[in-house]
Design a protein around this nucleic acid. Structure first.
Lengths: 233, 233
DNA sequence: TGTATCTGACCGACCGGTCAGATAGACTCG
DNA sequence: CGAGTCTATCTGACCGGTCGGTCAGATACA
């Protein structure tokens, strides 16, 4: 071993190359050679560091999921109050049109694999388990503070995530996704808060439609649209 | 031409075979021969009635979409009152575990194609346009009757559909989808109605969690869980 | 010299699409 | 009715190309 971290670096480079390729072409259209070329190595290297194409993509999706979980946790931890946490999540999940398209293309591809291959399905299960945990934390905090409606926190968290995913599918089918990206981001925030917020409390804040003015009751000035790392544009 | 409808029959048989195959293996793993064998014909026939594999699948998804739209419209028309209409939609979309799995596997596959190929994307756009129209009809009726919260009907319809799709993705990732199928169906109904229903009105009906008891205010006895054609199991 | 790493030619399998011909119903014509 | 012909339909061998995976050898660092 030339260097203790050499293998880790190599695998990372290959993962990133695989991610860009899969986002463009899709799992079954991507070849090991495409990935190797993108990573700047020869084809043999891909199967030197991974057992097979499947193995490489399992690794990729696992890594992607851990990275997303980490960033969601960070974003949520940095925001104060349940409403701000939801908004931070939205900002994280809708970073920019190009990033969204890449991630969700890869994600839809992944779902196709997970729906048919057990080993991929398990990764998806882990993804949703992590999301549910994060989302439930927010929901429970909102309920404790009396901002959100009191209901089953697990189910609410699950629906919250469903709204994210479902809107994303719709966005992918839009004629001009770039053009309506902002509209989707704002709509997502609005709809999530409409779904979560306790009626009678901050309902009037929803009507202007400008999410900028939305804040949890009793908290005077939130730290401006939650600052998330990895934001572009 | 032996018979005027012969070609239509042939194409239908091939579509159905392609649907079953794509649900099991996925678009890129299915071969033209698989489809031919499943349809009980020789490989050459598939490309006698369709220009290419892509063409066959575009035709399949278009047909699937039209069929879904039709059945949704029927189900909605047969149900009385907005709450019953929502429940009819849920019953239609969650017919049985096996049908769900087949349809959603195919659907996820389709999304992967639509996210990358313009010709497939257009089909997806048509699908969501039709859904939005149907869903908006229900939402508007609910608002007119004062049962649903007054908001932008188009956006509400879009979120309604997002909850369907998003929950379905989660269901596909479950360890034992068969086992939790009923739970998902009930949760979907509960969450949709929670999202839509005007607070203060039938909120107390939501708490028992038993969707069987849920009905629109002022309508004494709904015609039992909406009867939908094509229901199995 | 030893060994981890890397290379790319190569293999076997597969697949979409083509095509030359087989098949058989329909339609003459006698 | 029956032979002959036409043509829509069907068949499956075949072609060209691709791809995942293998491997013998090259490379270069320790």
């Amino acid at each position: 071993m030339r260097s203790a971290t050499h293998e880790a670096e190599r695998r990372l480079v290959l993962r990133k190359a695989a991610f860009r390729e899969v986002a463009e072409r899709g799992f079954s259209s991507v070849t090991l050679e495409d990935i190797a070329v993108r990573a700047g190595v020869s084809k043999g290297v891909t199967l030197y560091y991974f057992d097979s194409k499947d193995d490489l993509f399992r690794d990729l999706f696992s890594w992607l999921i851990d990275s997303i979980h980490l960033r969601m946790r960070d974003a949520v931890a940095a925001a104060e109050g349940p409403v701000e946490k939801v908004r931070a999540l939205v900002a994280l999940i809708f970073p920019s049109p190009s990033r969204n398209r890449a991630f969700f293309r890869a994600y839809v591809d992944f779902c196709g694999l997970a729906a048919r291959k057990e080993s991929f399905r398990q990764i998806g299960e882990r993804f949703y388990a992590g999301c549910r945990e994060i989302d439930r934390g927010i929901v429970e905090e909102g309920m404790r503070r009396g901002v959100f409606i009191l209901r089953d926190a697990g189910e609410t968290a699950s629906t919250l995530r469903a709204i994210f995913d479902g809107l994303m599918l719709q966005w992918l089918m839009e004629k001009d996704p770039e053009a309506c990206f902002e509209a989707y981001r704002e709509r997502c925030e609005r709809e999530l808060l409409h779904y979560l917020l306790s009626p009678g409390r901050p309902v009037e804040l929803l009507s202007p439609g400008r999410p900028g003015e939305l804040l949890a009751p009793g908290r005077p000035e939130p730290p401006e649209t939650a600052r998330i790392k990895g934001r572009k544009r």
